[in-house]
Design a protein around this nucleic acid. Structure first.
Length: 636
RNA sequence: UGGGGAUUGGUGUAACGGUAGCACGACUGACUCUGACUCAGUUAGUCAAGGUUCAAAUCCUUGAUCCCCAGCCA
C-alpha cells in the first residue's frame, strides 16, 4: 500500500484508531497523574510511573453477580490501563454473616472474570495481591485507641434500641449521655470490650462528630460493636469488630489505594470517610509529638520525595469515588434476594445457569470477555441507568460467533425418510467447523475454513418447525413440493407425510437430488445459472445421531424490574424459565468436554454442562442466534 | 418537611460557552450453503420555564421528576 502525499491523511487506513472518550473516573485519574497527586511507583517494572492502585472489596457473604462484574472490570481495567495494581480485598468485618465458602468462590470468580484482561489479583503485571480486612484488625484497634485519646471517640453504653430511639430526625439532633465521658474512662471500657468483659450489644465505640448533622452518618457513628463470633480468618482472637465506615478507609490506606471506587449509595458516607482519615492523621501527629511513635506512618506513608496523601498529611488518605451500579433489565441483583431464590429453591443453586451470578453465567456459557465488553460498552457514570439485558446477550453472541466451533443438532426432531436414497447407504460429507471470519477477510487475513466429516443417510432428523405441509408466504423451509438444502448435503423436496391418530406428523417422506451433493446445484449444461434454493436446514442422520439432554433457558422474570409493580419479586417470576428437551446431536459432540461451547447451527450457542456423564451429555443453551424469521412471525 | 446525588434519541454514552456525535436497538435494503455473521442506508434526543450571552446541553434563577440516607449491615 503506497500513500500518495497529496491525499489527505485521514483515509481509513491511516486514521488514528477510534478511541473511546474517557469516562469521568479516568479523567480524574489522568488529572491526578498529571498533577503527581499520588506519587510514582518506587520500584518494580512500573518504577517511575504515576501510581494507580485500585481494589475490589467484596464482603464474603454471598456470591458475586453481574453487578460486581462492573466493579471488577472498572477497577482492573484502570490498573491495566495506567500500569497500576489491582488488589482483591475481602471486607470481612462482620463474622456473623461471612463464610470461608464465599471467600473461595469469590477468588475463583474474580480469577475467571479478570482472565478477560489476561491477569488476576495474583498473576500478571497488574496483580496487586490478595488481602483481608481482618489482617488489619490490629492497626484498626490502634487507630481507634488514638482517636479516643485525642477526644475523637468515646464508648457509649446505649443499647441498639436506645440509639435508634435517640437518633432524632432531620430537625431534631441525636443524643447520647456518654458523649462527654473522660477519655480515660472510654479507654478503660474499650479495653474491656476488647478483652471480652462485656456482652454483645452492651456498648459500642462511637466517633464524636456531630449529633445534629443533617447527614445521619455523621451523628456519632459506631466504630466498633461487640460480637462474640468466630471469624473465618482470625478465629476467636477478637470479640469486637469494626464497622464498615471505620474499617474501609483504613483498609484503603494500608494498601495505598489511590482511587477507592464504590457505588452511589456511599456518597453520603464520603464525608465520614474523609473525617476518619483526617482524625487518624490528627491522632498520629499528636502521638508523634508525644514521642510515642507506635502509630508512626510506617507502611502507610507514601515515603520518598513524593507528595503526601490527598490531605498533605502523614497517613495515606485515599480518594473515594462513586459510580452507578450495573442494573440489567429482567434481573434481580441483590445478594439478599439471590440468597432467597437459592434457599427457596426457585433455582437449583448459586450456579444455576439462569442466575445472574458470575458462577451462573459462567456455567451457562457466557465468556468472561463478553462481560468485559459489556462493561466497557455501557461505560461508567453517576447516572442510575438500566441496561437492556439483550446487550449482554449480544455481547455473548459477538464473542461466541468468533470462537465457537459449529455443529448440527436437532432440538425437536421429526423424522425424514429419503425415498430415493439407496437402502443402507451412508455417505461421509464435509462439514465446515468454523466459517471464514468475514472481519479477518477484510483485512486480508481470512483463515481458510476448517472441515470435518459427518455421516449422511436415508433417514434423518430435522427440526419440527422447519417443516409445514403448506408453506405460507416467505416460509423458505421444507414443505410439500418445496425444495430446500440440507446444509453441506443435498437438496431435498417433501412428498408426503405420515401422521399418528391425533394428527401429529410422525414422518416426512422426501426425495433428494443426487446432483446437489455438498449442497450446491450444478450449473446447466449450457451455462445456465445453477438452481437456487431459498432455505437451508440443519439435520442429523437418524442412525448416527446421539440422544442428549439440552436445557433451554428463558429469563427468570417476566418484568423488566422484578417486584416493581407489587413490591414482591416472586409475583414476577417466569414459570417457564427452564425447558428441558431430548435432542438428537451430532455424534462428534460426544467427545466434547465440560465447558466446551459450540454453535448449533441456526439454533444458538450451547455449552457442555457439569452434569454431563459419559453417554449422557447435557448441554446448556447459552443464548439463541438472532432470528429475523421468528420476529416476522411474531409480528403478523 | 432535612441532607446527598442524578436528568441528552427506545437504551447506554459523548460534547467541559462555539456544527448535539458515537454505540446498541428498531426499520429498509444488499449479501449469504446458518432467516446467523457482514455491509449500506433510515430513524429518533438536550426534564420544564425564565434569564445572561453574538452564541447555552453547558452559566444563573425557579420548578419538576427519579435515586440514596435515621443498622451495633456492607
Amino acid at each position: 500500500m503506497s500513500n500518495t502525499p497529496h491525499e489527505p491523511t485521514n483515509s481509513p487506513s491511516d486514521a488514528a484508531p477510534e478511541v473511546r472518550p474517557l469516562n469521568f473516573i479516568e479523567q480524574i485519574v489522568e488529572q491526578d497523574n498529571a498533577g503527581g497527586k499520588w506519587g510514582v511507583w518506587a520500584d518494580g517494572p512500573a518504577k517511575g510511573l504515576a501510581k494507580v492502585q485500585t481494589r475490589f472489596p467484596p464482603e464474603p457473604n454471598g456470591y458475586l453477580h453481574l453487578g460486581h462484574a462492573k466493579s471488577i472490570c472498572l477497577n482492573y481495567g484502570l490498573a491495566q490501563k495506567y500500569g497500576g495494581k489491582f488488589n482483591l480485598r475481602f471486607d470481612d468485618t462482620n463474622p456473623a454473616k461471612e463464610e470461608q465458602e464465599y471467600v473461595d468462590a469469590i477468588k475463583d470468580d474474580v480469577r475467571w472474570l479478570t482472565s478477560a484482561f489476561g491477569g488476576s489479583f495474583d498473576s500478571g503485571p497488574n496483580a496487586g495481591g490478595l488481602y483481608f480486612a481482618s489482617d488489619y484488625f490490629g492497626k484498626m484497634y490502634e487507630y481507634a485507641v488514638a482517636l479516643i485519646k485525642t477526644g475523637h471517640a468515646y464508648v457509649c453504653e446505649l443499647s441498639a434500641e436506645e440509639v435508634a430511639k435517640r437518633r432524632g430526625n432531620p430537625s431534631v439532633p441525636a443524643t447520647s449521655p456518654f458523649r462527654d465521658r473522660p477519655a480515660s474512662e472510654s479507654l478503660k471500657l474499650f479495653d474491656e470490650m476488647r478483652r471480652g468483659v462485656h456482652a454483645d450489644g452492651s456498648m459500642t465505640l462511637r466517633a464524636k462528630i456531630d449529633l445534629a448533622s443533617p447527614n445521619f452518618n455523621l451523628r456519632d457513628p459506631v466504630l466498633y460493636r461487640i460480637l462474640h463470633e468466630h471469624h473465618h480468618n482470625t478465629g476467636d482472637a477478637w470479640c469486637i469488630y469494626a464497622m464498615y465506615d471505620w474499617a474501609h478507609g483504613i483498609e484503603d490506606s494500608l494498601e495505598n489505594v489511590t482511587h477507592s471506587i464504590c457505588t452511589l449509595e456511599f456518597e453520603n458516607h464520603k464525608p465520614l470517610y474523609d473525617w476518619f482519615m483526617r482524625a487518624i492523621n490528627d491522632a498520629v501527629e499528636v502521638e508523634g509529638k508525644r514521642g510515642a511513635s507506635k502509630l508512626g506512618a510506617g507502611s502507610t506513608s507514601i515515603g520518598g520525595s513524593g507528595p503526601v496523601g490527598t490531605e498533605g498529611r502523614v497517613v495515606w488518605h485515599s480518594q473515594q469515588i462513586e459510580f452507578a451500579k450495573f442494573k440489567p433489565t429482567y434481573t434481580l441483583l441483590s445478594k439478599r434476594n439471590l440468597l432467597k431464590m437459592v434457599q427457596e429453591k426457585f433455582v437449583s443453586g448459586w450456579d444455576d445457569p439462569r442466575m445472574p451470578t458470575l458462577r451462573g453465567v459462567r456455567r451457562r456459557g457466557y465468556p468472561a470477555s463478553a462481560l468485559r465488553a459489556v462493561c466497557e460498552d455501557v461505560g461508567v457514570t453517576k447516572v442510575e441507568s438500566v441496561i437492556d439485558v439483550t446487550r449482554i446477550e449480544n455481547a455473548v453472541r459477538d464473542v461466541l460467533n468468533r470462537t465457537a466451533p459449529r455443529a448440527m443438532s436437532v432440538l425437536r426432531p421429526v423424522k425424514v425418510v429419503i425415498e430415493n436414497w439407496p437402502a443402507g447407504h451412508v455417505e461421509m460429507l464435509d462439514f465446515v467447523i468454523m466459517p471464514e471470519d468475514s472481519n479477518a477477510a477484510e483485512g486480508g487475513n481470512a483463515k481458510p475454513a476448517q472441515t470435518r466429516k459427518i455421516p449422511f443417510s436415508g433417514t434423518l432428523f430435522i427440526e419440527q418447525e422447519d417443516f409445514m405441509e403448506v408453506a405460507p408466504k416467505k416460509y423458505f423451509r421444507l414443505a410439500i413440493g418445496q425444495e430446500v438444502r440440507l446444509r453441506w448435503a443435498y437438496f431435498i423436496k417433501a412428498i408426503s407425510v405420515v401422521k399418528d391418530a391425533s394428527g401429529n406428523i410422525t414422518q416426512i417422506n422426501a426425495t433428494y437430488d443426487p446432483a446437489t451433493k455438498g449442497g450446491d446445484a450444478p450449473a446447466g449444461p449450457n451455462g445456465e445459472p445453477a438452481r437456487k434454493v431459498k432455505g437451508t436446514l440443519h439435520w442429523v442422520s437418524a442412525e448416527h445421531a446421539v440422544d442428549a439432554e439440552v436445557r433451554l433457558f428463558d429469563r427468570l422474570f417476566k418484568t423488566e424490574e422484578p417486584g416493581k409493580a407489587t413490591g414482591e419479586w416472586k409475583d414476577d417470576l417466569n414459570p417457564n424459565s427452564l425447558e428441558v428437551v431430548r435432542a438428537k446431536i451430532d455424534p462428534h459432540l460426544t467427545s466434547a468436554k465440560v465447558g466446551d461451547t459450540f454453535q448449533f447451527e441456526r439454533l444458538g450457542y450451547f455449552r457442555v454442562d457439569e452434569d454431563s456423564k459419559p453417554g449422557a451429555m447435557v448441554f446448556n443453551r447459552t443464548v439463541t442466534l438472532k432470528d429475523d424469521w421468528a420476529k416476522q412471525v411474531g409480528k403478523s
